[in-house]
């Protein structure tokens, strides 16, 4: 059955990540950074909470993004290089099932990873603030948006790795992440231009994922709320963007000769 095969591939991808030492190194550094955030807070008197939320959520984003990209680039290429894919695709597994299985497997890895980092972050916050405020619920919204960013970047990494080398895929995906964080600034800049250059900059700003809208770290650090409309808009945007990137990855992979 299709869904069960996707599930088995996803679980195996998750199992591989969990048994990989690289992942633990990254998580260790992320937790170390989170543990040290109270120290940064103490330097900025009166701004402890704001600094902690900013630093903590940025650390969750960056480390998660690194894990997404560095595991993501090997999801397909490693299976081809080591020929493990041959024994998978010679079974009743369709190529699109394999891609989706890999996508959800890494997604699950990031979900578990984000959960542990979020627990570390909230523990640090509890240590500093000696309790939670009602507005801290917004932090969960920010973490949800971070997770949405991971799902989009995994889809993009899979797309790049379906046709290019791991190193190039990592560069492309990282470039997308950085530019995506300035998507709205790019749109603003495009309005200052005209002619072809305006069209090009505007085109790029719409092509890259709009991570600006998903980055509410500064907002929640200042205890500002996240609207329901933004929640819905970002959720739909992430679903459609990921679906488009995955469809393109599948289209390329379906026609690829595995030499």
């Amino acid at each position: 059955m299709t869904t069960s095969r996707i599930g088995h591939i996803a679980y195996n991808t998750f199992r591989e990540a969990v048994r990989d030492r690289v992942l633990y190194n990254l998580i260790f550094f992320a937790l170390l950074l989170l543990a040290s955030t109270p120290l940064f807070g103490k330097i900025s008197i009166g701004l402890e909470r704001i600094v902690l939320v900013n630093l903590g959520l940025t650390a969750v984003t960056i480390f998660g993004m690194l894990i997404s990209i560095f595991i993501g680039i090997g999801l397909v290429s490693k299976e081809i290089d080591k020929k493990t894919l041959y024994t998978v695709l010679s079974r009743p597994v369709r190529r699109w099932e394999f891609i989706l299985g890999k996508y959800f497997g890494l997604g699950l890895t990031l979900l578990v990873n984000t959960f542990f980092m979020a627990v570390g972050f909230l523990a640090a916050l509890l240590y500093i603030a000696h309790g939670f405020q009602r507005s801290d619920v917004q932090l969960l919204g920010a973490l949800y948006f971070i997770m949405l960013q991971f799902m989009v970047i995994i889809a993009i990494t899979l797309l790049f790795s379906s046709f290019s080398s791991p190193m190039l895929s990592a560069l492309f995906a990282f470039g997308y992440f950085v530019i995506g964080n300035f998507a709205e600034e790019l749109r603003g800049a495009a309005n200052l231009l005209d002619g072809v250059s305006r069209a090009i900059v505007l085109g790029i700003s719409y092509l890259v994922p709009n991570f600006t809208a998903m980055n509410v770290i500064s907002q929640v650090a200042h205890s500002e709320g996240i609207t329901g409309a933004l929640l819905l808009q970002n959720s739909l945007y992430a679903i459609f963007y990921s679906a488009a990137a995955l469809s393109a990855a599948i289209l390329i992979f379906e026609n690829r000769d595995l030499k």
Partner: peptide, 20 residues
Amino acid sequence: PQVKRSIGFLPEQPYFYDYL
């Protein structure tokens, strides 16, 4: 795809998921 249910394949110099 139904064909794949009836066949088994061993590639040359196989390498498997070594974490399993």
